[in-house]
């Protein structure tokens, strides 16, 4: 039997065509995935994100430095310090960070964190750092500072960095400066600790340390007497 084929060749069977298209789609999908990964790596390497710390206080350059000497309730608001993240790349960047400082065999001294933030491509965003200081360190005590940062890029890679540092507090407290002298047992006072000490001295919410103080800085108790 002779069959006439308008294009000089027989048409491909339907199932054969579907299977072949799916196979091409499979190869195309794999190639596109490769291209996407290569572009993401290229973007991350060439246009890598940059971080700069910000804060309205003096001593910029580090989150603690820029948060130093701020006054609680004034410029030391929720967004007073943190870091500015610039993402010049082609894909979104998601970030979150947290840290804590505690004495070895002692209390948790401070902790802080940032919210989970997604920075769109070619934009920059301020990521606020919330700090909370819970206790003052004892002199000559050993502390462990732990930092944790998690970032994911283009929903492909996720990098988690955990830093743990050991150190020793060694400082002389000196004479506390009363900045809000409303002493008394029921009226907590605010004290300012010299900023030349260890990072913890830089205050609550990017500002001064808040009483009721623990350990040797129970100023309010002394003022009430």
């Amino acid at each position: 039997m002779n069959t006439y084929y308008p294009y000089g060749r027989p048409p491909k069977p339907r199932l054969y065509r579907i299977s072949r298209y799916l196979r091409w789609a499979s190869v195309l999908a794999t190639v596109l995935v490769f291209v996407y990964i290569v572009l993401a790596i290229f973007s991350l390497v060439v246009y890598h994100p940059t971080f700069t710390f910000y804060g309205s206080g003096s001593g910029g350059g580090s989150p603690f430095g820029s948060c130093a000497n701020q006054t609680r309730g004034g410029s030391g608001s929720a967004n007073a310090c943190g870091f500015n993240v610039t993402n010049p790349g082609w894909f979104p960047l998601t970030l979150q960070a947290a840290f804590s400082i505690h004495e070895v065999n002692g209390p948790l001294l401070a902790h802080g964190s940032t919210p989970l933030v997604t920075i769109a491509p070619s934009t920059s965003e301020n990521v606020a750092l919330s700090l909370e200081f819970l206790a003052l360190p004892s002199n000559n005590s050993t502390y462990v500072a732990s930092g944790w940062i998690n970032g994911s890029y283009a929903s492909l890679f996720s990098l988690t960095i955990t830093i743990s540092l050991n150190g020793k507090f060694s400082f002389s407290p000196g004479t506390p400066v009363v900045t809000h002298a409303r002493g008394g047992l029921s009226n907590p006072a605010f004290v300012k600790v010299p900023s030349s000490g260890p990072p913890l001295n830089h205050g609550d919410q990017c500002g001064n340390l808040q009483s009721p103080m623990r350990r040797s800085y129970a100023l309010s108790e002394r003022m009430g007497r």
Partner: peptide, 17 residues
């Protein structure tokens, strides 16, 4: 005086395949 640990998760990349 401490340690740094880095965890690199690339499962999102692999799932795409």
């Amino acid at each position: 005086s401490g340690s740094v640990s880095i965890m690199f998760d690339y499962s999102g990349t692999i799932y795409l395949f």
